[in-house]
Simulated assay, not measured.
Amino acid sequence: MQKLAYMTIGSVATLLAFLGALLPGLPTTPFLLVALWAFARSSERLLGLLERTPLLSTALAEARRFEERRTIRREIKLFALACAWGSVLVTALAVGLSRPVLLGVVATAAVGGTIAMWWFPTER
């Protein structure tokens, strides 16, 4: 039962990582970290499949770097912050104040990403 739960978590995280690779504003690397963690505990086959996926190769390299060094490269942090706050700006311009809940959710996600980028050490 526990193995199935890990496989489900890994599959959902992988789906979100794919979406993050394709959609601006949605991160990829954190979801890959979760997927790697879950598949390492449940399925060597799914872990190998994830590691061989070309679309995720760059994010996977960053996830591995983070796992090994517990740091994030400066350019990755800047890109993540630009995407997060760019999403807030695009959302604000697209919907204005007509959808305050949506704007609040996107802004809250940007604040969360900003805190994460500040919290994790920058690779030197």
Rank of each mutant, 00 (worst) to 15 (best):
residue 22 L to K: 04
residue 51 E to D: 09
residue 52 R to H: 14
residue 12 V to Y: 00
residue 98 S to A: 14
residue 44 E to W: 00
residue 100 P to Q: 01
residue 15 L to N: 02
residue 36 L to A: 10
residue 11 S to V: 01
residue 32 L to A: 10
residue 72 I to H: 10
residue 115 I to F: 05
residue 29 T to M: 15
residue 7 M to H: 07
residue 79 F to Y: 03
residue 91 T to W: 00
residue 64 R to C: 04
residue 42 S to G: 03
residue 48 G to D: 11
residue 4 L to K: 11
residue 78 L to Y: 06
residue 89 L to H: 04
residue 71 T to Q: 08
residue 1 M to D: 14
residue 81 L to P: 04
residue 60 L to K: 03
residue 105 V to I: 15
residue 114 T to C: 01
residue 110 A to Y: 06
residue 30 P to R: 07
residue 116 A to T: 08
residue 11 S to Y: 00
residue 45 R to Y: 05
residue 39 F to R: 12
residue 117 M to Q: 10
residue 78 L to H: 07
residue 67 E to R: 15
residue 77 K to R: 12
residue 73 R to G: 01
residue 36 L to S: 12
residue 31 F to D: 01
residue 114 T to N: 05
residue 1 M to E: 13
residue 93 L to H: 06
residue 101 V to R: 02
residue 34 V to A: 14
residue 13 A to H: 13
residue 44 E to H: 09
residue 54 P to Q: 13
residue 24 P to G: 06
residue 36 L to D: 07
residue 121 P to N: 07
residue 90 V to Y: 07
residue 99 R to T: 01
residue 69 R to T: 12
residue 3 K to G: 02
residue 36 L to H: 10
residue 52 R to E: 14
residue 52 R to G: 11
residue 3 K to E: 05
residue 121 P to L: 08
residue 94 A to E: 03
residue 108 T to G: 14
residue 28 T to S: 10
residue 34 V to K: 09
residue 21 A to N: 09
residue 102 L to C: 01
residue 108 T to F: 06
residue 20 G to K: 14
residue 117 M to S: 05
residue 44 E to A: 13
residue 122 T to V: 00
residue 115 I to G: 00
residue 27 P to Y: 14
residue 41 R to P: 11
residue 5 A to S: 00
residue 94 A to G: 09
residue 7 M to Y: 03
residue 92 A to Y: 10
residue 53 T to H: 01
residue 85 W to Y: 04
residue 66 F to I: 00
residue 10 G to P: 06
residue 15 L to A: 13
residue 76 I to V: 15
residue 38 A to Y: 09
residue 87 S to A: 11
residue 37 W to F: 15
residue 29 T to F: 12
residue 124 R to E: 15
residue 47 L to W: 10
residue 77 K to Q: 03
residue 47 L to Q: 13
residue 112 G to A: 15
residue 29 T to D: 08
residue 106 V to H: 03
residue 104 G to Y: 01
residue 32 L to Q: 11
residue 3 K to V: 08
residue 118 W to K: 07
residue 4 L to M: 09
residue 62 E to K: 14
residue 28 T to L: 00
residue 1 M to N: 12
residue 37 W to P: 05
residue 83 C to R: 02
residue 12 V to K: 04
residue 112 G to D: 08
residue 1 M to F: 11
residue 57 S to K: 11
residue 39 F to S: 12
residue 112 G to T: 10
residue 50 L to S: 05
residue 90 V to D: 02
residue 77 K to A: 10
residue 112 G to P: 11
residue 56 L to P: 08
residue 11 S to T: 15
residue 37 W to N: 13
